[in-house]
Design a protein around this nucleic acid. Sequence first.
RNA 1: GGGCGCUUAGCUCAGUUGGUUCAGAGCACUUGGUUUACACCCAAGGGGUCGGGGGUUCGAAUCCCUCAGCGCCCACCA
Length: 877
Amino acid sequence: MALEANYNSKSVEDKWYSYWMKHDFFHSEIDEREPYTIVIPPPNVTGVLHMGHMLNNTIQDVLIRRARLKGLNACWVPGMDHASIATEAKVVAKLKEDGIDKSDLTREEFLKHAWDWTDEYGGVILEQLKKLGASCDWARTKFTLDDNMSQQVIKSFVDLYNKGLIYRGYRMVNWDPEAKTTLSDEEVNYVEKQGNFYYISYKIQGSDETLTIATTRPETIFGDTAICINPNDDRFTHLKGKKAIVPICNRVVPIIEDEYVDVELGTGCLKVTPAHDINDKMLGDKHKLEVIDIFNEDASLNSFGMHYEGKDRFVARKEVTKELESLGVLIKTEQHLNKVGTSERTKAVIEPRLSDQWFLKMEDLVKPAIKAVLEEDDVVLHPKKFESTYRHWLSNIRDWNISRQLWWGQQIPAYFYGDGKEDFVVAENLEMAVSLAKEKTGNSDLTSAHLKQDPDALDTWFSSWLWPMSVFDGLNNPENEEFKYYYPTNDLVTGPDILFFWVARMIIAGFEYTGKRPFKNVYLTGLVRDKEGRKMSKQLGNSPDALKLIEEYGAGGVRVGLLLSSAAGNDLMFDEALCQQGKAFGNKIWNAYKLTQLWEVSDNIEQPASSALAIKWYQSKMGETLEEMEDHYSKYRISDALMSTYKLIWGDFCSSFLEMVKPAYGSPIDHKTYQQVIAIFEDNLRIVHPFMPFLTEELWHEISERSPEGALIINHWPENKDIDKELITDFDFAAEVISGIRTIRKEKNIPMKDAISLSVINSESVSTETDVIISKLGNISEINYITEALDGALTFRVKSNEYFVPMEGAINIEEEIAKLSEELKYTEGFLRSVQGKLKNEKFVSGAPEQVVANERKKEADAIAKIETIKTSLASLK
RNA sequence: GGGCGCUUAGCUCAGUUGGUUCAGAGCACUUGGUUUACACCCAAGGGGUCGGGGGUUCGAAUCCCUCAGCGCCCACCA
């Protein structure tokens, strides 16, 4: 059947994806082969495919497909993350639309809604990944909130608690008043905001004196429990031991001294609000100050806010300012740029808040993770530069707040039997909790009815940090065969933005639970930006619709487009033109195949010498490229591996090789050459397959009818080739000669179809083997070897070889002389610089022999070339 | 404030230990092409004092110092 004029991705992609699925080619089972495992960075269940996912998953698919071709037992485990904050926020919003308030629901009711939402809207992203061609082992799909997965999370919590690593603490945490939950430090972004410095004067008790403090948050004066001055600050020495009166609420607070206060900043006088500022909390602890929390959960003021009770903090700020002004205690306001912590998810301004939370001690846990990456290269980050960031974070790590005031997630397995701080037990389930509680209290009458489970859920990352283990049930059952076979995994591909959230923590968990790394290599991709370098975001609307791109350019086009300029760790400036380039590449391959199918194949002709030689050359060339690719892949330079392939196929195969073996118009091709070309084409498909899986599978089956066992996806990587370096050098030389001929043809308007003759003074003693190629690609009727310059001919030089194209009459003597003079001048200049170097005693004695020998060769070449040019000039004149 | 990194052709980037193949690639650009696979094409070509300055060296894109610009991470000031 005749092939379509151009490659049409639409009619091909779905077909082959179903075919691969139908034959279970993505599925991996334990066998005698070496495993190659990747666990997907589980996208949020709320997620929709965006450019970052496409890049990330394309890279994973390239790695997994290549591993499959290399004969490894490739297993790519897909899944999703329950993303507690993001999902809960979505569900709350959805309920609100339906007129339901979360606070009116019980936990069970809410969770029912959340699961309904998940079933209905969640997981689209996995379907979208299929469009991209992702060859995940779908039978292994996991969700971090699956029973089995949750069980493992709970188990690890109990385990870490029993090891004394998890504790409960009353700490200052980052409070998101919108989501009404705690955030980890990593989930807080500091954003520059224009604010004010308010200068407020406080009366000194028992005197007419006042002192002025500067604050950015006047509404927090209700929580003031001290004024702090620097003991070394002479301006305030007289206030030592006195008390100040807080305006509006007229609270009398002590004036304390601490060197923490910066004399330069503000007025050198600080109001201390231990409940609402981390540093103030530190001062409060040190000086045993009272702690007054003035906010409700939603950051509106509580009763301590007096007549501002119930008002939002920002509203209160304005109104308090007004009142202070009317009281005459607001001295002035100044503009002040400061960085405000905001929630990564809800964008709400974070409120530092004291509360009971669960923490994981990190200090000892991180030790093996530091060693593995920084000392032993047991886990390798690509690119290496991220190791310093990694070191910095791990060596300054703080305890991890793992509790969240949410319902969507694993509920903390702590069961309270009383109101005391220590009146709880930690157990895997209620039943075990009861027996533990009985033991702890000595009260044998205690029943489950007396126990109340902590309402909070665990941080999402507290489940995903187990991911490489939990997907293989490694915590429930560490001795299971699959876990032993697939773990540790090989490569992890993810963005540097979650290096701490996730990557580092997986390494920590891996060592804690298995004593082994969770993966060998971490490939950190860059951010996908638009071509102006801006981050892609919904607000800017600069993020292209991933599925539309696939529709327009084909999955292969998009994959190639994304990979073309994405060095590991570097941001990628995405431009649709790259997809166009990717699509064009696919089309090029398609048409190359089409060409071979237009040939008439004959058994009755011998293989021409040119074809035999061309085949030998291309094999060498491919062998060279295979080595190059191997090197690139080993360094995770996927973009470079693709570029090597691209140049080999487009340049060497299409532009050179096919032209060399192409039969003359109207003539058939010999059977042997045809067979060899097809075999070579198959090798090409093998190396392109990881990048363009659909197109290559399509052509693979176009070449011949194949059984499912013969499908390309499970075929094999090309074998190593014998590389004839000399032949490659000879062809490079020949290419320059051909280029010279083409230039002359172009300059003199000699059509390609008119054969011309060529004479050469072979000073370089170049092999004549490639003459057949030169003749064919230059349409040369004959090549004559001569020793004397030819009169009345156009000339060009390659190294010190001189070539003549006889062209009586068509030669413009003046032009030729000018051209030659120019070349002479340049070569003489070049010779002077080389000789300058060689005359330098220090160079000759100091530089390595090889370098000096090379300069001498350059000198000799230049002298020879100057000779030939001079001879030519003389003959022209 | 602390740390890391970047600056090479119009754009996106390679350039491993200083010296053959070092000034490169892809794209874009210019010019010329309906040769019967592909105009999503072919051929030829132009283009950079390697951010500025200084230093080490026989020799520097590469090593050192300095200045300028940009990016990221961490901490954070009331």
